[in-house]
Design a protein around this nucleic acid. Structure first.
Length: 584
RNA sequence: GCCGAUUUAGCUCAGUAGGUAGAGCGCAACAAUGGUAAUGUUGAGGUCAUCAGUUCGAUUCUGGUAAUCGGCACCA
């Protein structure tokens, strides 16, 4: 997928196309007032105030038609520099432009004109609107002015523009293809998960195939954690409201939790995260500085009352399972522990063959003292610490203000879903606040009780979201070790070859391979097709040849090549590939 | 939650300019004895999301509700 923001020539072209769209909108809706029209990774958009009018699906073709007309007319795009005073006068009836101009420096203001349309803009632009003719309006939506939900909802229209028709068509095709690997589609087709209105929205149910994948993933990460000195615990899925008042989560996220259940003068909530429970486990015993770090981990069910509009398959749900851990350590251990976690993340991503991810250093928004309360010095210190470790490790990362947790800065690992959502898969968070709130201590070298630091981390993040991403990355073609069915044994003639098929199947099952026989009364071609459609890694076709020689003939998913080997050779091949977690 | 759209069989979708519905796949039965991506025939399966309104009559028109989808906002 092309990146419109990063590719400079595409960026300029799309920026100009945004102006063409604005001009078209102005022609069709004379009352239109324009906020901003930037180029983003997936194309351009423009935020527009149309008064009481809202854009519907039927409007996009009309706007496109007008855009075509404008492009065909082929007016030149002309830049003019204006003084701030002049700009304020030019746009005196447009409160949006006045708002923009008021934040600009005199001497740095320019406007661009094309025919009857002039817009405040820094540029640069194409020399003529003619170059914008290969465009497509992709979608539209309401968008809060300045991203604030208390503000008016503007109409946002998204589009893309390319220098050639071929590139445009190619892009539109790629968008269509991406829908084919949407985890919601694959999840249904492969029997991974389901939803039901009667159960409730955002509450996924894992089907037999899905549960196999989940179980393997949690075993995988649990084993890895054990080898790295983590200790696993299990804590209840609900907790007293006071627990969350103590942690501070109640004040911040009360409205995003399922409402409290009142029983016998007490109030409980379904837990939205596991930190407070783990804090209490740490506090359950005395800790020496020698015993740190203490790494508590849990495969934990959590519940969040996510906004209805935020729910997306198993990418964002109201009931999910975190691969969570809290590392309690001394200040002098922070760097090493942090590095250890970052290394684990890289290690795990390598195992799964993930390559399209980026590290985001999530910092506080200094102006938002309501969310990011607490001591400035601690914030500065912890942000600096994370930055330092990242620089030492030499990993690429970008910084994002206002993305920190309320208790501390984070390193988030961001991935892009098939349909283009930028989501966090893994996270490492540095926290000085919860130890304070829960009055955690350890006994230091000099016998004094001092505060530990907590590193929160999730590697697979939520198993749910991880599976969503895994399905999309693999197009549902899971590696052998994770495939719900690993081998499908297909007798050529179910009457003649079922015995031998059963014999081989039993051998596979006895060796822990997830295998089954398709001895249905269907044509061979039909059963082979089904094994392919279900993306089963190995299919064995069993006929006279195999039966006589005691061999198997296998074909890997997606390949045409057939290979005949002995039963033992096949078993060894499978075992090796499973052990090595081979990625296709 | 906000803006827009969608909702017809298990899945993917037609359709009715108001007279209670179809296809393909899937499923079941029967026939067909098969060598690497769909054998044939027959059949079952739908309060047309839901609740109201208009109407002699609503799956179709109007409104409410719910869920889903695309964004926005949110994301401990």
């Amino acid at each position: 997928m092309r990146n419109f923001k990063e590719e400079e020539s595409l960026n300029t072209l799309n920026h100009s196309c945004a102006h063409v769209m604005a001009q078209a909108v102005k022609h069709l809706y004379p009352q239109a007032k324009f906020w901003v029209g930037p180029v983003v990774e997936e194309g351009f958009y423009y935020d527009i105030d149309l008064g009481d009018v809202t854009i519907t699906d039927d409007d996009l073709p009309k706007i496109e038609k007008e855009m075509k007309k404008i492009c065909k007319d082929g007016k030149r795009i002309v830049r003019r520099e204006v003084s701030k005073e002049e700009a304020l006068e030019m746009f005196k009836d447009d409160e949006y432009k006045l708002d923009l101009i008021s934040n600009l420096e005199d001497g740095s203001i320019s406007v661009y004109s094309q025919g009857d349309f002039t817009d405040l803009c820094r540029g640069p632009h194409m020399d003529t609107v003619k170059k914008c003719r290969f465009h497509k309006l992709i979608k539209h939506s309401g968008a809060y002015w300045k991203g604030d939900k208390n503000n008016k909802v503007l109409q946002r229209i998204y589009g893309v523009c390319f220098p050639t028709k071929e590139e445009l068509d190619e892009h539109l095709e790629a968008l269509e293809e991406a829908k084919q690997r949407d985890h919601r589609k694959l999840g249904r087709e492969l029997g991974i998960f389901m939803f039901a209105d009667l159960v409730g929205r955002g509450l996924p149910m894992w089907l037999p195939n899905g549960f196999i994948v989940r179980r393997l993933l949690s075993d995988y990460i649990t084993d890895k954690e054990i080898s790295l000195g983590y200790q696993h615990v299990m804590t209840p899925s609900l907790g007293n409201v006071n627990l969350y008042k103590t942690s501070g989560h109640w004040a911040h996220y009360k409205d995003d939790m399922f409402p409290a259940m009142e029983v016998e003068d007490e109030a409980y909530v379904l837990r939205p995260m596991n930190c407070p429970h783990h804090m209490m486990i740490y506090r359950n015993s005395l800790h020496s500085y020698r015993d740190l770090p203490v790494r508590l981990a849990e495969i934990a069910n959590d519940f969040r009352f996510e906004a209805s509009g935020a729910l997306t398959g198993i990418e964002r749900t109201r009931a999910f399972t975190q691969n969570d851990s809290h590392i309690f350590c001394r200040p002098d251990q922070i760097k090493e522990e942090f590095k250890g976690v970052a290394k684990l993340i890289l290690d795990v991503y390598k195992d799964f063959g993930f390559e399209n991810y980026s590290f985001r250093l999530s910092l506080r928004d200094k102006n938002d003292t309501e969310k990011y309360f607490g001591n400035d010095e601690l914030w500065e210190r912890s942000e600096a610490e994370l930055r330092e470790v990242l620089n030492e490790m030499g990993v690429d990362y970008y910084e994002a203000e206002g993305e920190a947790a309320f208790y501390g800065p984070k390193l988030d690992v961001q991935v892009r879903s098939a349909i283009g959502h930028d989501v966090t898969l893994s996270t490492i968070q540095l926290d000085y606040q919860l130890p304070e709130r829960f009055e955690l201590t350890y006994v230091d070298r000099d016998g004094q009780k001092v505060r530990p630091v907590v590193i929160h981390r999730a590697i697979l993040g939520s198993l749910d979201r991880f599976v969503a991403f895994l399905l999309e990355e693999t197009k549902g073609n899971l590696p052998l070790w994770l495939a719900p069915t690993q081998v499908k044994v297909v007798p050529v003639n179910p009457d003649l070859h079922d015995d031998y098929s059963q014999e081989v199947n039993s051998l596979l099952l006895a060796n822990g391979i997830r295998s089954s026989v398709d001895n249905r009364d269907e044509k061979l071609g039909y059963r082979i097709r089904e094994a392919q459609v279900k993306k089963i890694p190995f299919q064995l076709v069993m006929g006279d040849k195999e039966k006589e020689n005691g061999t198997v003939t296998y074909r890997r998913f997606g390949e045409r090549k057939q290979t005949t080997v002995t039963q033992e050779e096949f078993l060894t091949l499978l075992k090796e590939e499973i052990k090595n977690k081979t990625i296709k």
